[in-house]
Amino acid sequence: SIVTKIISIVQERQNMDDGAPVKTRDIADAAGLSIYQVRLYLEQLHDVGVLEKVNAGKGVPGLWRLL
């Protein structure tokens, strides 16, 4: 499923980069989806406690990390 793919992308990127959070844009590119589509999935995963959003604010790139 797309959700499983997104989780594995975040996991893979974090492992490659010493646990650093992953940008929404990088996840979207790797999943082959638009940034808006991916954001909806990321928000859902956040709501159920799978991911945390590391930063927030208007015009700030979203950074995500697995919990």
Score class of each variant (00 low, 15 high):
I9G: 01
L67A: 15
I9M: 03
I9V: 06
M16A: 12
L40V: 12
S8W: 12
N15R: 12
I27F: 02
A56H: 11
Y41I: 14
V3P: 03
K23L: 06
T24N: 01
H46W: 12
Y41W: 09
A30V: 05
E43Q: 11
R65C: 07
T24F: 02
G57I: 06
D29C: 09
V22F: 09
I27S: 01
V60C: 13
V3T: 09
D47F: 12
Q37L: 14
I7L: 10
G49P: 05
L40Y: 14
T24V: 04
L42S: 00
W64D: 01
L67K: 14
S1Q: 11
I35S: 05
R13F: 14
S34Q: 06
K23R: 12
N55M: 08
A31W: 03
Q44T: 09
L42T: 11
R65Y: 10
L63V: 05
K23A: 13
V38H: 00
Y36A: 13
D26E: 08
D29K: 13
V54M: 05
L51K: 02
T4S: 13
R13P: 02
K23E: 07
G32I: 02
L63Y: 10
G19F: 06
V10F: 15
R65T: 06
Y36F: 11
K53T: 03
Q37A: 10
P61A: 14
L67T: 13
G57M: 06
G57E: 08
I6E: 06
Y36E: 13
L33V: 05
A56Q: 11
G49A: 02
P61M: 13
V54Q: 02
L40K: 13
V50R: 05
L51G: 01
A28R: 02
S1P: 07
V22W: 04
A20F: 06
S8I: 08
L45D: 00
L40I: 14
T24Q: 03
P21E: 02
Q14N: 06
Q14W: 04
L63N: 05
Q44W: 15
K58T: 11
G59M: 05
G57S: 07
A31D: 01
K5H: 08
V48T: 09
D29Y: 12
A56N: 12
G62S: 14
Q11K: 13
Y41K: 02
L51D: 00
L51C: 02
L63Q: 09
P21T: 05
P21Q: 04
R13D: 00
G49T: 02
T24E: 15
E12L: 10
D26Q: 05
L51M: 11
E43G: 05
D26S: 04
S34M: 04
L45C: 02
V54A: 03
D18F: 12
V48N: 12
A56L: 10
D29H: 11
G19Y: 15
Q44M: 15
L33C: 04
V22S: 05
S34D: 09
P21S: 07
A20R: 13
S8H: 11
E12N: 09
Q11T: 10
D29R: 13
G19C: 09
Q44Y: 15
K5C: 12
L42W: 02
V22D: 00
R65Q: 06
Q37S: 07
I2A: 04
M16V: 08
K58D: 14
S8P: 00
R25D: 09
K5V: 07
V60I: 10
E12F: 12
K5G: 03
Q14A: 07
A20T: 07
M16C: 09
K58G: 09
E12I: 10
K53C: 07
I9H: 03
L51R: 00
H46A: 15
V60H: 13
